[in-house]
Nucleic acid binder design. Sequence first.
DNA 1: ATTAGCACTTGTACTCGAAGAGTGCCAGAG
DNA 2: CTCTGGCACTCTTCGAGTACAAGTGCTAAT
Lengths: 341, 341
Amino acid sequence: MSDTRRLQVLRAIVEDYVHTREPVGSRALVERHDLEVSPATIRNDMAHLEEEGLIAAPHTSAGRIPTDLGYRRFVDKITEVRPLTSAERRAMDTLLETADDHDAMLEHTVRLLAMLTNQVAVIQHPQRSTAKIRHIDIVSMSSHKALVIVILSSGKVDQRMVTLADAIGDDSLHRLAQVLSSELHQRSISALPLPADTLISRVEPVLRPSMAILAQAVETILESSRVDRIIMAGTANLARSGRDLGPSIGPILEALEEQVVLLRLLTEMEQDRRGLSIRIGHETSHDSLIETAVVAAEYGSHTGAEGAKLGVVGPTRMDYGSTMSAVRAMARYLSRILSEG
Amino acid sequence: MSDTRRLQVLRAIVEDYVHTREPVGSRALVERHDLEVSPATIRNDMAHLEEEGLIAAPHTSAGRIPTDLGYRRFVDKITEVRPLTSAERRAMDTLLETADDHDAMLEHTVRLLAMLTNQVAVIQHPQRSTAKIRHIDIVSMSSHKALVIVILSSGKVDQRMVTLADAIGDDSLHRLAQVLSSELHQRSISALPLPADTLISRVEPVLRPSMAILAQAVETILESSRVDRIIMAGTANLARSGRDLGPSIGPILEALEEQVVLLRLLTEMEQDRRGLSIRIGHETSHDSLIETAVVAAEYGSHTGAEGAKLGVVGPTRMDYGSTMSAVRAMARYLSRILSEG
DNA sequence: ATTAGCACTTGTACTCGAAGAGTGCCAGAG
DNA sequence: CTCTGGCACTCTTCGAGTACAAGTGCTAAT
């Protein structure tokens, strides 16, 4: 019992099925690949593979298609990550030039990834739990309204409008900003709650009510800045591969729009030795995603923030080789740019 | 020839078809609506309506369905905008409470609109051509890197990372920010290019190369802040109404992701007397949207910025009455909040 | 202007049968 | 023990044929 040939057969089945989207039979298998044995032999191997739960036959008289488990083994044992083509390299370099601010960077990245893989691409905003406060600004918008702006070490800027207790002049506002900024400088955004009492005691009594409001606003900003968000691109690609995705792509789109689900999934996925995290079919443990696979990789990990991921969501019947390489390359590329910037 | 009855018939056809998604025949028509004439009479009317191009028969022996033109007349002559239900009112009020910053506001709005209408909702970032610069900040990120932050009168905050010509201390950076901020204060963002020479002459020679870079950065920020963007929600709803949208929703999703198309469409749509802009089918003059209709309304127009729109994109076979009312109510509501904030 | 009746058209649903694809198993050869 | 050829069997797919239902357009009568 040639064990290596069985793997070959599995590989051939996955590749053919990914290519043709049709169940693949023993005859076609020996013809398309140069396995130098007869169809009957292949049939025996296929029977074994079926026993192992790696492939399945939709009908008695149809060929076999890989199961989730089959894809899993294919990915684990067989797939080699393909190097990027020069066209893909070039696309990434163009990305660098058009990189504007932090958010635009992520957006361009996710779009490019969607284009490269022809699938839905997602990217997590970097978790900034290790980020620090770099600066705080307050800008008067009208007599009682002001905009509180918090700048983090990661380069991210968050803002929030507040209504002050009293009409406050620009000078006092400036004073308040200075106190906030110097008191909280370099404070980790995960160190909550803020020392509101200290902050308040640092300013003249007349400013104290407003300072309380401002401190509260900063705290709110920090809290919501720890909430992860996901940017998505290429949902149109879902429709194109709709044939693979069961009856309707509606539930999938819903799951994707419901960022919470995807976020949790991305977070709990662990990287394998190749630096990739892959979930296939039921492994996503989410019913709507039962016919999809997620391929993700961490990026920016050496900048201190840990665990932000990017990846793609596609049908389980996808070209894992090129998807994996695209995702990994993208993650590395983005990491490099972020650490340079 | 009772002309008013023909309109009644058209209305009935549209309503039935929207409701049942099936071609509607003369018999069903007289039964479901209490037109007190016989099917034969209705048939005569239908023949007239067909001549006018308002309805069409998919097959000789099927009922009639409205054409784009039919929907158009229905919308123009017949539909009355329905008042909101109390549940909808309540949902909008909840929205107010969760309104955080400017962007979150728009995002919540578009999500709510998607939920209310069960369709894809879109909202244009307000065109800020009339917005003014309120404040400019510069925050040092590392020895040569700094973050330029521009705060606009609309409350929007834009930022951009720059690499300075020389290592510059916090004091000098602060000085540069002060010059920029005071020189450009209240300047309209559409007044480009900036008076770079004046700005540069205001600082000591040693800072001038960096000032040139900063001025350039501010200009870039202003330029890109004039570029409109679209936020979208509810794409999953597209899939659910997929039956109405022809062979595949792929091209539609693509058109929506391609924001440029939608942006131009929204911009050139003109409001009717009811404060609504509607394009039906071919009126969108975009092939991928041939089976969709766009219902939009301007918001925030009395705050000075003109022409920002929000709306929904759905199948031509939609419930125009409630969609129109939801869109209009949402636009008014958002306008009110924006003018208060 | 409206109505009743009727012939005509056409899509839909269903059945039947033939064709094609692929398997599983068995017996035999290396 | 592994591989192979052969063969019966199963099951889906596809086309043709047919009956049926829905709905129209027309004509003649009111």
